[in-house]
C-alpha cells in the first residue's frame, strides 16, 4: 500500500483533468465547449506556476511573462508565411518570412520561456520575500511593455490574429497532462525535494548543504519553460491575442487559482484552476439565463465577475490553506495504513 502512494498522488490530478475533458466534450453544448477547453489550459498554466511558487514558497508575479513570451512566439511563428508580410510588415525578416508547424511552435514556446526565465532568474533568484515578488512583477511589466510596443518582434499594440486554432480537446488535455507529469516528476526529484526543504526551513536546508539559489533557479527555469509551453497552448486556443490578455489580470487570476486550491500541492493547483473555472462558467451562463427546476434565472451582466470574487473570498475564509490544504491526494484512511500523527 505504502509503495503506491506516489501513484495515487499522480493519478488524482490527471484523472480530474481527463474527467473534465471527457465530461464536457460529451455533455456540454458545442457553444460552451471552448470555455471548458480554456479551463483545461488554465490547469496547465497554474500547474506551471506551481512548479516555482509551490515548491519554492516564493511568490512570483512574473510567470505570466513566460506565458506571454510563449504565446506570442508560437502565435507569430505559426501564421502562414504567405500572409504574414501583409499583416505584420514590421517584423524582423527572419520572423516575417518563415513559419513553423503547430508542434514545433509549442517546442519553441517552451524553449524561449525556459531561456528567458533562466536569464531573468540568475540575478532575481537571489531575492526573497516581498523583494522577489516586486522584482518579478517588474519583469512582467517590462515584458508587457516591450511586447506591446516593439513591433519588430510581434504585432505591437494591435491584435495578433490569423493564428491557427490547433488547440482542441486533444491538444489541451494532452498538454495539461504533460505539464502535470513534468511538475510531478520534478517535485519528486532530488532537486524538487531540496527546494521544498528550503521552503520549509532555509537555514536548516543551507546547513544540510543545499544551494538555495541554484535550486530556485532550476525551478524558475523549468516553470518558465512550462509556462511558455502553456502560452503556446493558449494562443492556439484563442486564435487571436492582445498583450493585455497575458498581463496583470491573468497573473492575479492564476495566482488566486493556485492559492484557492492549495499553494503547496500539485493537486491544489489543478483543483483550484478547475474550481474557479467551473464557477466562472456557471456564473457566466447564469447571465445568459439558466433554468433551475423550471424557474428561469437571469442575472444581470457583470454579476459573474463579482460572484467569482465572492466565491474566492468565501473559500479562502473557510479554508485558509486552500481547498486541498496543500496536500496531495491519498485514499481515505480505511484503505491506507494507519499512521501516527506528528502534529
Amino acid at each position: 500500500m505504502r509503495r503506491t502512494t506516489w501513484l495515487q498522488e499522480l493519478l488524482a490530478p490527471i484523472a480530474l483533468v481527463a474527467l473534465l475533458a471527457i465530461a464536457s466534450s460529451l455533455w456540454v453544448s458545442s457553444a460552451d465547449q471552448s470555455k471548458f477547453q480554456t479551463a483545461i489550459v488554465y490547469v496547465a498554466i497554474v500547474a506551471a506556476l506551481y512548479v516555482f511558487v509551490g515548491n519554492s514558497g516564493v511568490l512570483s508575479f512574473g510567470q505570466v511573462s513566460f506565458v506571454a513570451v510563449g504565446a506570442f512566439s508560437a502565435g507569430v511563428m505559426t501564421i502562414p508565411a504567405g500572409t504574414k508580410p501583409g499583416v505584420l510588415p514590421t517584423l524582423f525578416p527572419l520572423l516575417r518570412d518563415h513559419s513553423i508547424s503547430n508542434v514545433w511552435s509549442l517546442v519553441l514556446a517552451a524553449g524561449l520561456g525556459g531561456v528567458y526565465a533562466f536569464a531573468v532568474g540568475i540575478p532575481l533568484m537571489r531575492l526573497s520575500g516581498i523583494a522577489a515578488g516586486i522584482a518579478t512583477l517588474a519583469v512582467l511589466g517590462i515584458t508587457y511593455n516591450l511586447l506591446t510596443y516593439w513591433n519588430s518582434i510581434g504585432p505591437g499594440a494591435t491584435t495578433l490574429s490569423l493564428i491557427p486554432e490547433t488547440t482542441d480537446y486533444w491538444q489541451a488535455t494532452v498538454g495539461a497532462i504533460s505539464v502535470i507529469l513534468v511538475a510531478f516528476g520534478y517535485q519528486r526529484s532530488r532537486f524538487g525535494r531540496q527546494l521544498r526543504a528550503a521552503r520549509e526551513d532555509p537555514a536548516a536546508a543551507r546547513a544540510a548543504g543545499i544551494d538555495i539559489h541554484r535550486q530556485r533557479l532550476w525551478a524558475f527555469t523549468l516553470s518558465g519553460a512550462l509556462s511558455g509551453f502553456t502560452g503556446g497552448l493558449y494562443v492556439h486556443l484563442l486564435g487571436s491575442i492582445q498583450t493585455n490578455q497575458v498581463y496583470l489580470d491573468l497573473t492575479f487570476l492564476t495566482l488566486a487559482m493556485l492559492v484557492v486550491g492549495g499553494i503547496s500541492s500539485l493537486l491544489g493547483a489543478v483543483v483550484g484552476a478547475i474550481a474557479i473555472s467551473l464557477f466562472t462558467i456557471l456564473l457566466g451562463n447564469s447571465e445568459e439565463g439558466i433554468h433551475v427546476f423550471g424557474w428561469g434565472i437571469k442575472a444581470p451582466a457583470g454579476t459573474s465577475l463579482v460572484g467569482v470574487a465572492v466565491v474566492m473570498l468565501v473559500i479562502l475564509l473557510l479554508r485558509p490553506a486552500g481547498i486541498t490544504g496543500g496536500r496531495e491526494f491519498s485514499l481515505p484512511s480505511t484503505f491506507a495504513r494507519p499512521r501516527l500523527r506528528s502534529r
Binding site: 495566482l255 492559492v259 499553494i263 467569482v308 470574487a309 465572492v310 474566492m312 473570498l313 479562502l316 485558509p320
Partner: peptide, 12 residues
C-alpha cells in the same frame, strides 16, 4: 499568500 490573494479578490 492567502491574505494577499484575499486582497486580490476584494479588489476584483
Amino acid at each position: 499568500s492567502t491574505m494577499l490573494v484575499a486582497t486580490f479578490a476584494i479588489a476584483y
